[in-house]
Design a protein around this nucleic acid. Sequence first.
DNA 1: AAACCACGTTGACGTGGATCAAACGCGGCC
DNA 2: GGCCGCGTTTGATCCACGTCAACGTGGTTT
Lengths: 247, 247
Amino acid sequence: MPPNGSSAKLSLEVVKTACSNCNLRELCLPLGLNDQELEKLDEMVASRRRLKRGDHLYHAGQAFDSIYAIRSGFFKTDVLIEDGRDQVTGFQMAGELLGLDGIGSEMHTCNAVALENSEVCVIPFSHLEGLSREIHSLQHHFHKVMSREIVRDHGVMLLLGTMRAEERLATFLLNLSQRFTARGFSPAEFNLRMTREEIGSYLGLKLETVSRAFSRFQEDGLAAVQQKHIRILDTPGLKMLMTHQRG
Amino acid sequence: MPPNGSSAKLSLEVVKTACSNCNLRELCLPLGLNDQELEKLDEMVASRRRLKRGDHLYHAGQAFDSIYAIRSGFFKTDVLIEDGRDQVTGFQMAGELLGLDGIGSEMHTCNAVALENSEVCVIPFSHLEGLSREIHSLQHHFHKVMSREIVRDHGVMLLLGTMRAEERLATFLLNLSQRFTARGFSPAEFNLRMTREEIGSYLGLKLETVSRAFSRFQEDGLAAVQQKHIRILDTPGLKMLMTHQRG
DNA sequence: AAACCACGTTGACGTGGATCAAACGCGGCC
DNA sequence: GGCCGCGTTTGATCCACGTCAACGTGGTTT
């Protein structure tokens, strides 16, 4: 069984799985709410949606009316322009929100694609705005989530604007590791859900460069890489790569 | 007198210049509010702050409690990390908001620096959250503003991840042009407030590359460039550069 | 007006990553 | 089991941009 393979084991529970008994509530929107607030939140979550690997949760251009909380699975978001250029803007995992990009223009501005079989909670945005007028802590937490998304994007801009290939990949691996850890998985060992090309698109590199950087990590004893299976061997070494270097 | 030179002429008006009679209200937070809602907004804007060229509005690490609406002037925001790397994450002009990055962690995560003498409205964030619980349209508009910031960042990621130097610069110029236009200035002629190095940092290029790209635009008749003064001569040509090309 | 200084331009050269190309590994499917 | 096809690895070559260096320019100081 793969370290954090959430793909297998179809859960049979058709039971009411609401925010109040969701084990992601400390990572997701409910954070900081009390019991009765949580109950209100339960009512807001309109429905669930299951997606198979490769399915689109939404497309760029599609009308926006809900945001989505990932219950399980793994997604990428990407933007593409006429001439065929394509940029992966992020990879999202359980507990994270999708669709915030659509609020501003009332339509989605990127594509969200499941990279493995996944399930999301559908949160009609007007309900969220309504409820966050009632529940201060929900309002505040939602603002924090949006703000953090902006900060995350700034981090990616820093990466794309100033880092060299291996620094980018090291940063990427450490970020994944940290997020897996927060979800109770191994910090050191995991399976990538995305291809080299998708990693490359996210990091502003070509797939060959990503592959070579992985090989280099392997040579240098920083990580054991076998296709999509990653084992981080030297976290401090990767951190060094990420921050240091230059000059 | 430069086309849109807001630098000179210190206005002596100490008059009450509130949102309700601010000529930026269609670009800024008040958008879509009715008269009585606007009055409430007036009360929320706690104070003004004037900054001279080079002054910091806030520093990374500083405690967050307010966001800022630019009344006049021009800013940059940048993040920098230990090893000296530095990424300009945006340039902001009148009517735009600064400080959204600070909500998530209760402290600012980037530096905001005035690139010319500027004035901002100080908006205590708790007041904004309070008022947006009362005024639905304010709440919704604020969410839109944050969302658009995310979308803008995705655009920059696309630029940094996939474009070549001249495409980046063309995109940058057209974006500035469009924003100046929205503020009633000439779409074709303006003065840059930032140095080549700052442009380069924003676009993920070195200052020499920026300079060369400007020279190339000059040669190709796309724009007349004289130090900081820019005159766009061939907007369609720049658009072509921006989107097309590749392959 | 001379001297200074920050910023910008231009040239020569080096290099990291892109591109092109070939082979390999692995899972899916008859 | 053997074939097929996608994803990955690896090598050889190329080129856009970075680096280093010299010089130009416009604005400010004295």
